[in-house]
């Protein structure tokens, strides 16, 4: 492992991301923010939704924002760089094992996911006109945030090395959309109790643990999956996606 090369790779991505950060953030955060405004502000103010809904919504919004921007930040450049023009080749020829190029992409994605969470938390809080975060634990917030950032980066790596440029739209409608809607982002897992089968099925969706994890960290007095279960599942999903992602990367990188 060669730190100078690793840092140079990371600073290349940071340099390019700086140019694209505004459109990227708008692309991944705009829709969740609209949701926050409509459901967290309009619906609660007008009395159509209970005031407590805000506390349910905020963690889910952070989860979906982080996961979306992390996936996007890793997958989109990878898809483009592996395409036809093979732009990534220059980095594969850098004096470092090629796996570190993938790790670097994930570290970059994690940083962007964390940045998205950092941006969204205060904005959503203000848009909804304040959310009660009394029981929040900084330590569990941080650890959940790290695990979720790694999850997003791992999924991004896996998708980015498995999907072609022409399939991006399909990936969004077939993978990302169901993942968001059945990810317990806009409602807690407990709300699925009337649908026992669905409640079981959504457990295969890693986003569920991200949303529930942030509920446990930010609004622990509201119902959420138990924190050890969430943490364990996140670690499990992180391991799976990072492993699969690295394998796909290796396959894609070596002809």
């Amino acid at each position: 492992m060669n730190w100078r090369t690793f840092v140079a790779l990371l600073s290349r991505d940071a340099h390019v991301a700086r140019r694209n950060i505004i459109p990227l953030m708008l692309q991944t955060l705009f829709q969740p923010m609209l949701f926050v405004f409509v459901f967290g502000r309009i619906m609660t103010r007008s009395g159509l939704m209970a005031e407590q809904y805000k506390s349910m919504l905020l963690p889910g919004i952070i989860a979906v924002s982080m996961v979306l921007s992390g996936i996007w930040a890793v997958a989109m450049p990878l898809i483009a760089e592996f395409q036809f023009s093979k732009e990534i080749e220059d980095r594969l020829l850098a004096p470092i094992e090629i796996e570190w190029v993938a790790v670097e992409k994930m570290v970059g994605g994690m940083l962007q996911a964390l940045f998205a969470g950092l941006v969204v938390l205060p904005i959503a809080w203000f848009v909804m006109g304040g959310v009660d975060l009394d029981g929040a634990s900084t330590l569990s917030l941080l650890s959940i945030a790290l695990l979720v950032a790694l999850l997003a980066a791992g999924i991004g790596l896996t998708l980015g090395c498995s999907v072609g440029q022409t399939q991006i739209g399909l990936m969004f409608s077939l993978v990302m959309a169901p993942m968001i809607f059945f990810g317990c982002t806009y409602y807690p897992w407990q709300a699925l109790a009337p649908f026992p089968l669905l409640q079981r099925i959504v457990l295969i969706n890693p986003l569920v643990y991200a949303s529930e994890g942030f509920r446990g960290a930010l609004v622990p007095h509201f119902p959420h999956l138990s924190m050890p279960a969430v943490t364990g599942s996140l670690i499990g999903f992180d391991t799976i996606f990072v492993t699969v992602g690295l394998r796909q990367f290796r396959k894609k990188a070596l002809g």
Partner: peptide, 10 residues
Amino acid sequence: PQRPNLDFGL
């Protein structure tokens, strides 16, 4: 390389 694979981000 035979076909330039230059970095279009830079």
